Structure formats: structure tokens, C-alpha cells
Amino acid sequence: MSVSKIKSHAKINLALNVTGKLTKLHKIESIIAFIELHDLITLKSTKNLKHVIRFNGKFSKNIKKNNTVQKLFNILDEQKLLNNKKFQVKITKNIPQKAGLGGGSMNAASILNFLIRKKFIKLNQKKTFKITSLIGSDVILGINPTSTVLRSNNTLKKFFKCPRLYTLLVKPSFGCSTKKIYSKVKRFTKSKFNNPKKNMFRSDFLISQNNSLEKIAISKYPKLKKIKSFLGALKNPLFVRMTGSGSVIIGYYQSKQDCELAKVQFKRKFKDYWCNTSKTI
């Protein structure tokens, strides 16, 4: 098998509501998009007795041995779905960790997509959902990634050819622990997205929404409020919002020019923060 290259795109929450709690996990609903920013995965078969998984790149430090990709291959081996085939995997990490961008989860989803598409494994929808759930609750979002509404009952509605937005992503020097942010949730929001429509991806709808985890993250990390206020005061952002449980704050723009100008202005003020312009896909 020749080397295959896979783009693993970052996931962003355009809007997010926490609507309740199950035994362990919270119930959420979200409007989700994917952006051009991606990790690059190279994958090829190997004669080794074990899968070989390596990470490199700017955001490859401190990735645990029991990471999402390792979990995926462990599950596939345990269920004998790969017929004893082993793979060598190298992942160049361009997506920061603890950012709310789903980098690790999307890595696992992207590899699973590839293995299904290339017919290394055969899975029906129910089995795919079961495997992704064993890895992480948001991995299912990266299966056939496109604009998606996650309903509060944990079902997905996918949409195609949605309006595109330019994005300015900013991450301070710290990350947010998803577990810690959710542990502070005390109030739940009434479901708003249980009847998904394509117009939910229009900027005029998104402007009126929010991320209900944002206030919690800002109360714990006041620097996030400073970032949001600065981005909001720049020229022509449609809206500014945290993605997921943070710590990335995103400014959304209709114009690429406005987005790039905002990046220049932000970097003048916050020289040490990670900053990236991208676009929804």
C-alpha cells in the first residue's frame, strides 16, 4: 500500500446550548461547521506486529499514549475488523489542544472515514456510532464531515453548500479542560435546534445565538473576556464567540480582507497568542 494523506479538519461550534444531563455526560445541542485548518495524517500498511502511531508538529507535545487514534485502532483490533492488518500513522498537529476545535476526535474520525471508504473495514451506521462513542462523544461529528446540527437527543442533521464564513481563531497561552468547564454548568437551556434548517447557518441567525459554556469559561479565565472584547471592537466582525469548551475565541467575518486585517491588528496587541485565519468548508 502506498502512503495515503488525509486532511483532518478542525471542528467549530457556531452555537452551543447545554440542555440537560445524563448519568455522566451533559446533553448538548450545537450548530457545527468545519474549517480549512487541518491536521495532516499520513497512513500506510506495515508488517510490524503493532500499529505505529507518531505525532509531530507544533501542537504534538504531551499527547497521551492512550490517545483517540490509539483507542480507535485498539477497538478495531479487539473487534477483529482489520483482519490483522497493521498501519503506520504519522499525524502533523496543526490544531492546538484543549482549544474547543476537536483536533484529537477529528483525527480518529478521519482515519475511520478513510478505512471505511477504502473498504479496509465494513461498518453500518449503527456500528459506526457505537465505535465512535467508545472513543469520545464528539467523534461521530467527524464521520463524513459537513455542516451539521446536533440535536439535544444526540441525533445529527447534515447540510451541504451552506454559507461560508471567514474565521479568525485566537488561543491564549492556556487551554480549557472540557471536564472542568462542564462541571461548572448549573443551568440548562431549552432546546432550540430540534427542528434543524439550513438557514441556521446564515449569519443573521447565528448572530442571535450563543455558546452557553462561554460565561463559565470567562469566569474561570478572565483573559478570554479581554480577547473577545478586543475582537468585537475591530472592524466588521459579524459576531465573536468561543468554540466548544474553549479556549479558542473566534471572530466571524463576511470578508476575507476584514478577517486578515483583524489578524494583523490582533497580533500587534497580543504577540504571544496563537492566531490563525481560516474559512468554513
Rank of each mutant, 00 (worst) to 15 (best):
R151I: 01
V149L: 02
G136I: 11
T146P: 01
K130W: 01
K161E: 00
I131T: 09
L169C: 11
F160K: 15
V139E: 03
S152V: 10
T146H: 05
L169N: 08
L134H: 11
T167G: 12
K157V: 03
F174H: 14
N124A: 05
K158Y: 03
I135W: 06
K171V: 05
S152Q: 13
Y166L: 00
I131Y: 04
V139W: 00
C162T: 11
S152N: 15
Y166M: 04
L169A: 12
S173G: 13
K171I: 04
G136P: 02
R151F: 00
T167C: 15
S152C: 15
T128M: 11
S133Y: 04
L141F: 14
K171E: 10
I131Q: 07
T128S: 10
T132V: 09
I135H: 10
P145S: 14
L168T: 09
T148Q: 03
V139N: 00
Y166N: 13
L150Q: 04
V139F: 05
L141E: 01
V149C: 03
I135R: 12
K171Y: 08
F129N: 12
G136R: 14
K126T: 11
C162E: 08
K126D: 11
P145A: 15
L156W: 05
T128F: 04
L134G: 06
L168I: 12
N153F: 04
S152P: 14
R164F: 10
K127I: 12
T128L: 10
T146C: 11
S147L: 01
R164V: 15
G136L: 05
I135G: 07
L141D: 01
F159G: 02
S173C: 10
T132D: 10
L165H: 14
N154S: 14
F159K: 00
P145I: 15
K127Y: 05
V170W: 05
S133K: 13
L134Y: 13
Y166I: 00
